[in-house]
Design a protein around this nucleic acid. Structure first.
Lengths: 341, 341
DNA sequence: GGGGCGGTTTGCATCGTTGTATAGTCCGGG
DNA sequence: CCCGGACTATACAACGATGCAAACCGCCCC
């Protein structure tokens, strides 16, 4: 049984409250008393009981981060950044992996969490729009990645559509004519995929290029294997593309793998651009052109927003905010080749 | 203020304890009472307060996972697996990122955590051996990855040395003569690096190959950039290697990048093998040969060990255990080329 | 010499939940 | 008709920490 304030108090010959005062750095404690108490604390190896503190204060110092899967480099990197950002506020981050299951995401939103958290940063995959409205749960939530207009909670994201258009324009700008897209998804909650598709189409139109439906490849999920399979389908089509915009870097890396396996040169025969700027793309061969969202900023903003909502009373209320984070296009070998580096 | 048992009890016209009994599924509650209470619960949107529960029970249902960095695919994957394994016990995982700082790792081990956790799964980077001994903290700990013989806590790992020897033997077996190693580290806590180096040396000796110190490349850390730089140094040496054993996959991917950049063929001119079997290696070009530890098993065992230590009284005690997890060699293009696939 | 005033310390209630002990209630069997 | 036992519900005391108000101290000042 670990020692409590009670034990320390007995050891030091003072009241429980005095020990508490010492622990909390209360000013008006006689130096001598403080020393004696501190000594007792060290001797017994006292550690404050967080559960009790939380019970009194209502704060746990823990925020939850819910992502589809840590295995994806993008989410892993995001998680790492958020852990760091949270650290500066001495919060700890608890990870919830939803695996993209709608059921689990719903539970999260409904506040059916098993553990006491002060706030939630949530990157939804299966849920969108109205479904994200909280039911009764007061815990502040910040949404990442989905652009839910007039959504029910604070929201941080880059301009997906514009970024997708940038990527597509980059391909068109280097003279590509048959620009394919890998990553389209049908289901209504696939907001990300739809926004990127919209950006792709808009850019094609703007560039005066035809939008051939045969050049849009659907995927089940956003992993390397999906990208590889989709690329194979495109290549097997009647008129293979000369460029591909993949909706994330994993798809792109999978696509490149297929291309090289089949003897196509990248970017010679087919240029490829991805989305996310994960580290893999900086060391792959060829290195991967991509859209780089300002991940550090996203993490910071998400944590800041939570912090504001947690601020006592005043700043806590207010309508949900939409925060836009900048992105930039990083041209690497997969679109511009080696020499231009 | 969220409703508590008290409020529900008032609403339903029963005692607090009865509500508690309903919530906890206690058997002897009249169906009618139960219904009435349940109705009150739903009406008020009651959610049990975890802090209070924990205060009573001493259990939080949260375990911490401390890793150097989530950004590394290996740790991200590991984290994902552990989250899953923990889920089956309805535990939640709290992530601590140490960044490999000795100071932070020491705090962890000393139990200076800021939050209430039932157990700790720790993959140390900066600390080794005696330094890992707990000071007073009773929270069960499971160590990952470091082979601390007679260590202070339960420990799960693969046989690093044997695995490294396997990798090296694989290279030697395909006729390579000048086999380099990338990933050596000097400092005393770099146990992993030293074990892998030992395995490498042992295998070379066994194969009757000379161990040229010029073929052992030191690295600062285990990232792609380090691998790329180390490979460059090796190539600039007087007698470049015809094969490289990299102490993890990131180093290997970095090394491959350098090789291809300089026009070397892989595995034609130089064969490369890594360690960890991260997903990147399955879709890189060439695909990466590697040592695949049974990551799922590691995660399960780690969680199981914690669970045992948390089991009431009996099974909880006992000396620290060393659990060995199997690994296998996965030969891919980077050592055996395309055709052999 | 008493009132007042910082500085210092303390007792008590409280956060929300659950374990234990106990008080009723109802039924069937002796 | 009474009693034991199963069932149901309640009261009370914890768990460990902190906010509050009050008590205590010595001391200066009127």
């Amino acid at each position: 049984m670990p020692p409590g304030l009670k034990d320390v108090a007995a050891q030091a010959g003072v009241s429980i409250k005095t020990v508490s005062n010492v622990v909390n750095g209360y000013v008006h404690v006689a130096p001598e008393t403080r020393a004696r108490v501190q000594q007792a604390i060290d001797a017994l190896g006292y550690k404050p009981n967080m559960a009790a503190r939380q019970l009194r204060s209502g704060r746990s110092g823990v925020i939850a981060l819910a992502v589809p899967e840590l295995q994806s480099p993008y989410f892993a990197e995001l998680a790492g950044r958020i852990v760091h950002a949270a650290e500066r506020r001495s919060w700890t981050v608890l990870i919830d992996q939803t695996d993209g299951h709608a059921e689990r995401e719903r539970n999260l939103v409904a506040g059916l969490r098993r553990h006491a958290i002060d706030g939630l940063i949530f990157s939804p995959l299966a849920l969108a729009g109205e479904e994200l409205a909280r039911g009764g749960d007061e815990t502040p939530m910040v949404l990442l990645g989905e652009r839910v207009s007039h959504g029910p909670a604070d929201h941080v994201a880059i301009d997906n559509t514009a970024a997708a258009a940038d990527a597509t324009r980059h391909l068109a700008g280097s003279g590509r004519r048959r620009i394919a897209a890998i990553g389209a998804q049908d289901f209504p909650s696939a907001v990300t995929a739809q926004q990127r598709l919209a950006g792709y189409r808009a850019a094609l139109e703007q560039a005066g290029l035809p939008t051939d439906p045969a050049l849009v490849a659907q995927v089940e999920s956003f992993h390397r294997a999906d990208g590889a399979a989709a690329m194979a389908r495109l290549l097997d089509g009647p008129q293979p593309p000369d460029a591909v915009f993949c909706f994330n870097d994993l798809l792109a890396l999978g696509a490149i793998r297929t291309l090289l396996e089949r003897g196509c040169s990248v970017p010679g025969d087919v240029a490829v651009i991805g989305f996310d700027d994960i580290e893999d793309g900086r060391f792959s061969t060829p290195t991967l052109s991509t859209i780089a969202p300002d991940l550090g900023r996203i993490a910071e903003l998400a944590v800041d927003l939570l912090a504001e909502r947690l601020g006592e009373g005043e700043a806590a209320a207010g309508p949900p905010r939409e925060l836009r984070v900048s992105h930039r296009l990083v041209a690497r070998e997969s679109t511009v080749g080696r020499d231009s580096r």
